[in-house]
């Protein structure tokens, strides 16, 4: 079974409070924030490794990212994936989700032969959750997102996806594109043996030319959406500090609750 896992390096979500917008340049300031594999993408790698343990085969990582993403893919190889492809080109910069899905689809088609394509349900940075569905459409394969359970029996899959207050059950056949939610599993820890093995695994970098993509179909030029200005949320609260003994503060809160009409 040949399984692809699409992963994305993102700034570490534990540091998002430090991200801000420069009021003059209007550009994002995120200096010093380390990059990590998008957390739920690790669940996708884990799901792939479990399927490989069950059915045999190979796990291939694919990422569209700048060249310095190599280290993040190596981390995925250390976790247990067999091979990695980094799709990297200046022409890909500014891609929205649809243009990103085009690049990933081109890479996956060029590698070829996948029985299953997995991705994290959403990225921590932009959080659209579009990629699994859009990739499925561009690959011409059935797809589901927010998977919380996945069972492989021969070539057929039994799946559960997350919905509000519950889940939906599906059946389908390979090949498919699936976006996994973090509930699906707990990603394994990487072993030191995995770290040792990672750098000897095949690693390929492809750009626009290797993927034979039209520059007009990727990057900013190929994106149906265009980003405008960035801004910071405005909260406009008065931030009045209630002071005194706990009892006094509680009294003031009771008055506020009454004024708001939740306490008669």
């Amino acid at each position: 079974m040949k399984i692809a896992v699409c992963i994305k390096p993102v700034p570490d979500p534990n540091h998002y409070n430090k991200i801000t917008v420069n009021p003059e340049t209007k550009l994002l300031e995120r200096k010093g924030i380390p990059m990590v594999i998008n957390p739920v993408d690790k669940n996708a790698i884990e799901a792939a490794l479990q399927l490989k343990e069950q059915a045999g085969g190979k796990v291939v990582l694919v990422s569209m990212a700048p060249p310095d993403a190599r280290e993040k893919l190596t981390e995925g190889l250390a976790m247990g994936a067999d091979e990695a492809f980094l799709l990297s080109d200046r022409a890909f910069a500014g891609s929205d989700t649809l243009a990103t899905a085009r690049v990933l689809a081109a890479g996956l088609k060029k590698i070829g032969g996948f029985d299953l394509i997995l991705a994290g349900a959403e990225s921590a940075d932009s959080g659209t959750s579009h990629i699994p569905s859009q990739l499925g459409e561009l690959m011409g394969l059935p797809h589901l997102n927010h998977l919380i359970e996945l069972n492989l029996e021969a070539a057929s899959l039994k799946m559960k996806t997350k919905i509000e207050y519950g889940y939906a059950e599906y059946e389908g056949n390979l090949p498919m594109v699936l976006g996994v939610a973090k509930e699906i599993n707990k990603p394994r820890y990487t072993t030191l043996m995995g770290v040792v093995a990672a750098r000897n695994k095949p690693f390929t970098i492809w750009g626009l030319d290797e993927l034979e993509l039209d520059p007009a179909s990727t990057g900013l030029a190929g994106s149906p959406t265009q980003p405008g200005e960035l801004h910071l949320p405005r909260h406009g609260r008065k931030a009045e500090l209630l002071e005194g003994e706990p009892g006094d503060i509680a009294g003031k809160i009771v008055a506020i609750l009454r004024a708001a009409g939740v306490l008669v």
Binding site: D96, S129, P132, I163
Partner: peptide
């Protein structure tokens, strides 16, 4: 932007080749 709505919107946007802004 529910689980199903997010999925449906992304699917339709890809089919139509049009832009979609999430959440």
């Amino acid at each position: 932007a529910s689980y199903c709505g997010s999925e449906l919107s992304a699917t339709v946007a890809a089919r139509l080749g049009t832009g979609l802004a999430a959440h």
